[in-house]
């Protein structure tokens, strides 16, 4: 579904990503792991068009998307939940979800159907639909950020460290929801520093280190390479 070939990205002169290759098959959850500064977020930003690739190709559903604007990419069915959630603090939960469907131009009925789906996934959001997003807890904001992305009915959902800064119980809920979203047919690309979490729910995994893919394969197999994982992820596991 998503194919990244020889992606190189540089912010200034020194490249941050060196010729990264990565593939996300339809219907799966793929984990992208790596220590701080490995280039995980940079990879996602290049895919969603927030930053320009220096060289390389990015294909989504057989279509070349590198060089397209973010709004064109969202329209194709690719949603990116950014690092730090980035909900709109001064908009209500309802408005945040509504703006998630910006490119879809739903009729009021369709909007309600999609909103109800998100509320079903995260009942907490339904309870708080009039609350300002900026006043919600970190876990609730993460749910909102994911719900907002789901409002565009994405084929591929890309999540940048959804567990960041959350309590273990909340992390478990979020991971369950990601699995649920995937079971309902959405392909997922999940970025995590916490390898154990991500490997537990993903089908395939890639490990990024200093801008290069150093390890990839089925998640179970990658999970077994404990020593390598430790070497690249900084021995947290």
């Amino acid at each position: 579904m998503l194919k990244i070939c020889d992606l190189t990205v540089a912010y200034s002169v020194a490249p941050v990503l060196h010729s990264v290759n990565l593939e996300v098959p339809e219907g799966k959850i793929v984990a992208l792991l790596g220590a701080n500064g490995a280039g995980k977020s940079t990879t996602l930003k290049a895919v969603s068009g927030l930053i320009r690739a220096h060289s390389g190709r990015i294909e989504f559903c057989g279509q070349l998307i590198s060089g397209k604007r973010p709004d064109e990419i969202v329209k194709l069915g690719l949603a990116h939940v950014p690092e730090g959630r980035l909900v709109f603090p001064g908009l209500s939960v309802f408005e945040n979800l509504k703006i998630g469907s910006y490119t879809r131009r739903y009729s009021p009925n369709q909007l309600k159907v999609h909103m109800d789906k998100v509320y079903e996934l995260f009942p907490r959001l339904a309870e708080r639909c009039t609350q300002l997003a900026g006043t919600m807890s970190g876990g609730e904001q993460q749910m909102l950020a994911i719900g907002r992305a789901m409002m565009s009915e994405p084929k591929l959902l890309m999540l940048d460290e959804p567990s960041l800064g959350l309590a273990p119980v909340v992390i478990d809920t979020i991971m369950d929801k990601i699995t649920e979203i995937n079971k309902h047919g959405t392909t997922v690309l999940l970025i995590e520093q916490n390898a154990e979490l991500a490997l537990a729910i993903s089908h395939y995994a890639y490990v990024l280190s200093v801008g290069e893919v150093v390890l990839s394969g089925e998640s179970e197999a990658v999970a077994e390479d404990k020593s390598i994982l430790e070497a690249y992820l900084g021995g947290e596991q």
Binding site: G49, P70, V74, P82, L86, F88, P89, I99, Y102
Partner: peptide, 23 residues
């Protein structure tokens, strides 16, 4: 209105509003 909400969204978080597909 959707456009009105989008204007407020852009005023708050520009990166996130690009990701919503807002120009």
């Amino acid at each position: 209105t959707m456009v009105g909400i989008a204007m407020r969204a852009v005023a708050q978080r520009q990166t996130a509003s690009w990701l919503m597909g807002i120009r």
